[in-house]
């Protein structure tokens, strides 16, 4: 017998529902995904297709109730996170699997300074760090924040949207997680800022060899960063494979429609077609 190393992250038949009025409405159905170390997986799909639910479920962040984890496994280095007690799971949250969310402006706590929110992360997951301020400044510089020293005492509302998202990314990275999950990290930002954040992520991917799950509608992000793409529709994965393959030869009608919908900068003529129309 040979012992093969378990895959970095393996989601098997994950099903999640939300209970409402004593009924359970399915939101994620039988989703299976595999992610190797150092790779980036993009999840795409229309609004409400279950992308965020899947991502949050990885460390069981969906509050239950209303969420119901109906079945499946989430194996992280062979450990089933869905079966882990809440207390042990907390070491994974932030420490090994960190998140960046869509709206940075509401994802940072308005009543605490940048320093205190970042220090909280370091104290929790990297107790060996003694000079906390220096470490925070290092990460803020890493994500391209100018004058990081002055920003320490700032409150979130004193920063621009792009800055706030950089702080979120710096905070997530500062715990040196094995996996970064970014849920639409650029959607709420201006186009120019989007490009900057994107470049930042690309740099991090190269320099740190970070494993990432990216949820996005942005084709540029998928092209530039993702090794694999999973397309979700109504809670299920309808197409899943290497990025090039999926983009060049979309199989599922839904994927074709989705690609047609995403405005491409290299196209002169922007075709606006609704998904519904193509599906008929």
């Amino acid at each position: 017998m040979t012992t093969t190393e378990p895959p970095f992250l393996e989601i098997k038949n994950l099903s999640i529902g939300f209970s409402a009025n004593e009924k359970v409405i399915p939101a994620v159905r039988n989703v299976s995904l595999t992610l190797n170390k150092g790779e980036t997986l993009a999840i795409v799909g229309e609004s409400g297709s279950g992308k965020s639910a899947t991502a949050l479920a990885i460390t069981r962040l969906l509050a239950s109730p209303p969420a119901v984890y109906q079945g499946g496994q989430i194996l992280f280095n062979g450990v089933d996170l869905l079966a882990l007690p809440e207390k042990e799971l907390r070491a994974y949250r932030g420490g090994r699997i960190a998140y960046v969310f869509q709206e940075a402006s509401t994802s940072l706590n308005p009543v605490y300074t940048i320093r205190s929110q970042m220090a909280e992360m370091l104290r929790l997951h990297r107790p060996e760090v003694h000079n906390i301020d220096a470490e925070i400044i290092r990460w803020l510089e890493m994500v391209g924040i100018t004058n990081p020293k002055e920003r320490l005492k700032a409150y979130p509302h004193q920063l621009s949207g792009g800055m706030q998202q950089r702080v979120m990314i710096a905070m997530a990275l500062s715990a040196q997680p094995d996996l970064l999950i970014a849920d639409e990290p650029t959607t709420a930002l201006d186009v120019t800022i989007q490009a900057q954040i994107l470049a930042q992520l690309r740099k991090l991917e190269k320099e740190l060899g970070m494993t990432m799950i990216l949820i996005t509608h942005n084709l540029a992000i998928i092209r530039g960063l993702a090794h694999q793409v999973a397309v979700m529709h109504h809670g299920s994965i309808v197409e899943y494979g290497p990025t090039e393959e999926v983009l060049q030869h979309p199989q599922h009608p839904y994927t074709k429609a989705l690609l047609a919908c995403i405005p491409r900068l290299d196209e002169h003529r922007r075709r606006l077609s609704t998904i519904e129309k193509e599906l008929q």
């Binding site: 932030g94 969310f101 994802s107 940072l108 909280e120 929790l124």
Partner: peptide, 14 residues
Amino acid sequence: RENYILTARAKGLS
């Protein structure tokens, strides 16, 4: 319901 509460939980805080 605020997002920063999700952030706090995602940090692994008790």
